[in-house]
Design a protein around this nucleic acid. Structure first.
Lengths: 216, 216
DNA sequence: TTAATTTTCAAACACTCGTTTGAAATTGAT
DNA sequence: ATCAATTTCAAACGAGTGTTTGAAAATTAA
């Protein structure tokens, strides 16, 4: 029996579309490629998701929802301990949420990070509208936590460091090395998420807790 | 007189294509969009660049060449001073190269960073072949410089930190905030490159010089 | 078993894609 | 002014795009 065929039609579409969107982008992926990979009739996408746009949103939300839920749970748990105001512990809780997503096959393994990395560079209109208001809590809560943990920094500088941290993190997990463009064989290997996290932690910890660039 | 029309046809095409590629990606940009924006006949692209792929390569190389040249010159200059083995000075020379590119209109201002950020997420086949061997010197030289400056780190860990540094840097300049996906209004403003660099420096400096995650 | 509902399917829809053509217009050199 | 080379142009090429249709098949309910 074909392994692909054992899953629901809509799930097969989501799985196939996810991988293709990651590798070739939204515009670089055609409905026929998706339905061929999913071994499904081409009309099935419109039947289940309404449109190609609707499919993309479904693909994204399938990963975003558990990630947001997981990282918020980690933060809530942390805030009930004595480490609530430790910036490194906060960074670790965010990192471990991504790590946990990456290690759970039911969440798509590391696929979700690559999807995120793809998506935030390639902002579809539909994401700009619906997603932010639904998941805005994530950035709000982490920003607040970091502001408490780093009182010597202005809110703006905290936001910048959160930005730097997540950029380094997501691109590391996704294997997106800027300078890969200039290098034949990559210098780093992102295959092992545990190792990536191990490399990340000292860099991020030191970066977050470094002296303020401007007075708060 | 139309400002656009004063430039050569091929330059008008490059300028229009660059902006469109950045905003909508390679597959999301059509030849007709490009030639309409450039106020040029659609056949002109194939006449001057052979194909859409050829155009993309030309768009990329126009920015990559001066950036690579500039950053290598900065490094060479640094290596003749007493700061040759200061990791922070090395990071600063890389940062200042990007900053200088961003401040010079003849290099496209900050456009080149956005193009880089777009491109390394969306790797066209043509870039994987021709570019690396031509510009490989950039990563090689900076990697070697950082290895000398950070002898307590393994070469692999140096490569990782270079990766983290460039990810944070390019995405900051390009205004690509991962978590923008989850937030209605952006928390940081990447408009002023000087300010971005100011925010970046303490984070990157501390990150680069933090204790090793593993023994060298 | 019959009837109602859900799902699948091949075919076609109108449209856009990158590229090519061959002639017209422009430019530069003699 | 004449010729040659370069550049521009409208039009068309075949192929691929996302979506829709209406009937066939499969599933579920009665």
């Amino acid at each position: 029996m074909d392994a692909v065929k054992n899953l629901d039609t809509s799930t097969r579409i989501l799985n196939a579309a996810e991988l293709l969107f990651i590798d070739h982008g939204f515009d670089g992926t055609s409905m026929r490629q998706i339905t061929a990979a999913a071994e499904v009739n081409i009309a099935a996408v419109n039947y289940y998701f309404g449109s190609k746009d609707g499919l993309f949103q479904a693909v994204f939300e399938r990963r975003a929802e558990p990630f947001v839920r997981l990282s918020l749970a980690k933060l809530t748990e942390l805030e009930s301990t004595v480490q609530a105001n430790d910036p490194i512990a906060i960074a670790e809780s965010f990192l471990s949420a991504a790590l946990e997503m990456g290690s759970k096959p039911e969440y798509g393994g590391l696929v979700f990070v690559r999807l995120l990395a793809r998506t935030y560079i390639e902002p579809r209109a539909i994401l700009k509208e619906k997603i932010p208001q639904r998941y805005g809590e994530l950035t709000r809560r982490y920003q607040q936590a970091l502001e408490r943990a780093l009182p010597e920094l202005s809110a703006a500088e905290v936001a910048w460091r959160f930005h730097f941290m997540t950029s380094a993190m997501f691109n590391a997990f996704a294997g997106n090395h800027v300078l890969r463009l200039f290098t034949a064989q990559p210098m780093v290997n992102a295959r092992d998420p545990q190792r990536v996290a191990q490399m990340l932690l000292p860099f991020i910890s030191a970066g977050l807790t470094s002296p303020a660039a401007v007075q708060a």
